[in-house]
Each structure stands twice: as structure tokens, then as C-alpha cells.
């Protein structure tokens, strides 16, 4: 079989589509990891942070007509506040926190937030203007949206910020210290509960950004949180829980596999193919593609 230009254009199209979707999973996965590293818990409300990011951005730009950068800032701030409130009101008040208890709390919070979102924004999907033009341009026959470039650019920006924060700031180092050895961290005077709060704030902020940048493409409604959380969680697991570099690669990988599945097989099976891939990885290498068996010993962000 001859490979034609058309085939190549399609391939490129799917890859871009995959990276675009995958960036969102990567961001959601990073959110999972931050909280996982500070508490050992999977935060099931992570998808809700993404939804609130998208919906709040819709309200601020489409209804209140704020300029995009301003709305972006306030949306992230708003969702971070939700994250902080969630930690202070639910997680922090648990007297003897076990992983199971905390996980169940996050499920409860997720259902609660979903309900509030339904009441506030209704059941319909919301449209958000693209950051710049919504006209596609052509690269080797593939049609690319400027928004896709925004998404990729913002993912890169956040990944760099992440590395700088955790490696070069005292707060970042303290958060790593807490996740490596909580008692030892407390013995140098680090307030571990405060670090947990910061991790919820950061995680919510990253989720919000994911929601803001994807909404122009997928449209947002109150019920999208669960699927986003599952894919993001999948990316976190495939990348090796707690490993954020792994999460970014795994997120993009899952996005690309989905896009290929949609393009070459059928778009009906898109979600199924992604989930199937995650299950295979878990069967073959439960610590994730990028996780090592050393991971638990050298747990890092």
C-alpha cells in the first residue's frame, strides 16, 4: 500500500488532535499527583476543578464581557479558593485521616460540586470564544486551530513553572519534603497541614487552567467532570502515580491513542479505546510506564 499525502495529513491531524486532548489529561493528572503526593489520596473532585474552570470562564467572558487575561486570572483564583475551602472544610477537619476516609470525602465533594454546577450553570453546554482566531490554518494538509497551539503552549508553560516551583522555591521543597517523609518534615518545622492546603490550591488551579483552555474546543457542561477525571486519573496511573513528568507523557499518549482510535477505527469507541489501553498498562506494569518499583521509596513530584 502506498502512503499518500492524504494519509500523512490525516496522521498529522490525529496527532495534533491527540496532543490537544492529551494536554488536558496531562494537566488533570498533574493535579491528581500534587494531592496524591501530599496526602496519599486520589482526589475524585479533580474533574470538578476542570469543569468549574471552564464554566466560570464562560460566565466571566461571555456574560460579563471581561477581557480574556483578566477573566483567566479570576477564574483560576476562584477555583483555587474552592480547592482551599474543600481542604479546610472537609479534609482538614478529619480527626484520624485514613486514605479510605479521605477518598470517600473527595467523592462526596465531587458529587456536591457537580450538583452546585448544575444549579448555577444549568444542564446545557456552554460555548467559550477561542483565545485568538477560530479559523484553522493548514500545516502539511492538516487543519490546525490556533487554540490547539494555545493549549500546547500553556501546558509547556505550566510544566516549566512546575519544575521551577518544586525545585527552586522553599515552599516547593517543603511540599516535596512532606511527601517524602512527613514526620521528618514536621521535625524541621514544616506545617504539614498547610502544605496539604497549598497542594489543594495548586491542584485546583491547574485543573481550572485545563478547563479554561479546553472549553473553546469541547464546550463545557456540569457533568463532564467524571470522564475528565477518569482520563486524567488514567494518565496519572499510566505515568506512575506521583510522577508528574510521567503524567505529562502519559496524558499526551492517551490523547493520541484516543485520536487514532477515533480516526482509524470509530469515534464511538474513542473512550473505550483509551480505557482499554489504561487497563492493559495496569495489567502489564501496575506501577505505570514511567513508574519504577523504586517509586514508593523515592516518591517525588
Amino acid at each position: 500500500m502506498e502512503i499518500t499525502n492524504q494519509d500523512f495529513s490525516n496522521l498529522l491531524q490525529y496527532i495534533f488532535m491527540g496532543i490537544q486532548r492529551g494536554s488536558i489529561y496531562a494537566l488533570a493528572a498533574m493535579g491528581f499527583n500534587i494531592i496524591y503526593n501530599s496526602t496519599g489520596v486520589i482526589n475524585f473532585a479533580q474533574g470538578e476543578f476542570v469543569v468549574y474552570g471552564g464554566l466560570m470562564m464562560v460566565s466571566l467572558t461571555m456574560t460579563m464581557n471581561l477581557p480574556v487575561p483578566v477573566a483567566f486570572f479570576f477564574t483560576v483564583l476562584f477555583v483555587m479558593l474552592i480547592g482551599i475551602l474543600m481542604e479546610r472544610l472537609t479534609i482538614n477537619t478529619v480527626k484520624s485521616p485514613t486514605v479510605l476516609r479521605l477518598v470517600i470525602i473527595t467523592i462526596g465533594v465531587s458529587i456536591f460540586l457537580e450538583g452546585i454546577a448544575m444549579v448555577s450553570w444549568g444542564k446545557n453546554s456552554h460555548v467559550l470564544r477561542h483565545f485568538s482566531s477560530s479559523e484553522t490554518f493548514e500545516v502539511f494538509g492538516a487543519m490546525i486551530l490556533p487554540q490547539t497551539l494555545w493549549i500546547i503552549g500553556i501546558l509547556v508553560f505550566i510544566a516549566l513553572g512546575f519544575i521551577l516551583f518544586f525545585n527552586y522555591t522553599m515552599t516547593g521543597k517543603c511540599m516535596r519534603a512532606c511527601s517524602i517523609n512527613r514526620d521528618a518534615a514536621r521535625l524541621v518545622g514544616i506545617n504539614d497541614r498547610k502544605m496539604v492546603m497549598i497542594s489543594f490550591a495548586l491542584s485546583a488551579g491547574i485543573g481550572a487552567i485545563a478547563g479554561i483552555i479546553i472549553t473553546p474546543i469541547i464546550q463545557m457542561d456540569y457533568g463532564r467532570g467524571t470522564m475528565l477525571a477518569i482520563k486524567g486519573f488514567g494518565a496519572a496511573v499510566v505515568g506512575g502515580l506521583g510522577n508528574s513528568v510521567g503524567a505529562i507523557f502519559a496524558g499526551i499518549l492517551i490523547g493520541i491513542i484516543e485520536a487514532f482510535g477515533a480516526g482509524y477505527i470509530s469515534s464511538h469507541y474513542m473512550d473505550a479505546i483509551a480505557l482499554f489501553f489504561m487497563l492493559i498498562v495496569l495489567f502489564v506494569k501496575p506501577s505505570g510506564i514511567f513508574g519504577s518499583s523504586e517509586a514508593s521509596k523515592l516518591k517525588e513530584f
Partner: peptide, 26 residues
């Protein structure tokens, strides 16, 4: 100084010392 040398193993020596001095820094 707890038993079994509770240092932050995946971090560098200097990072460990910085963390030791967290309060001093603050």
C-alpha cells in the same frame, strides 16, 4: 534526630540542609 536517619533521601545534601534551616529561612 530520629532513629534510622530520617533524611529526605531523594533530595540533595544541600536541599536537606536548606530544609533543616526552614525556620531560620522563614
Amino acid at each position: 534526630v530520629p532513629e534510622n536517619r530520617q533524611i529526605f533521601r531523594p533530595m540533595t545534601v544541600i536541599e536537606n540542609l536548606e530544609l533543616g534551616g526552614y525556620l531560620l529561612y522563614k
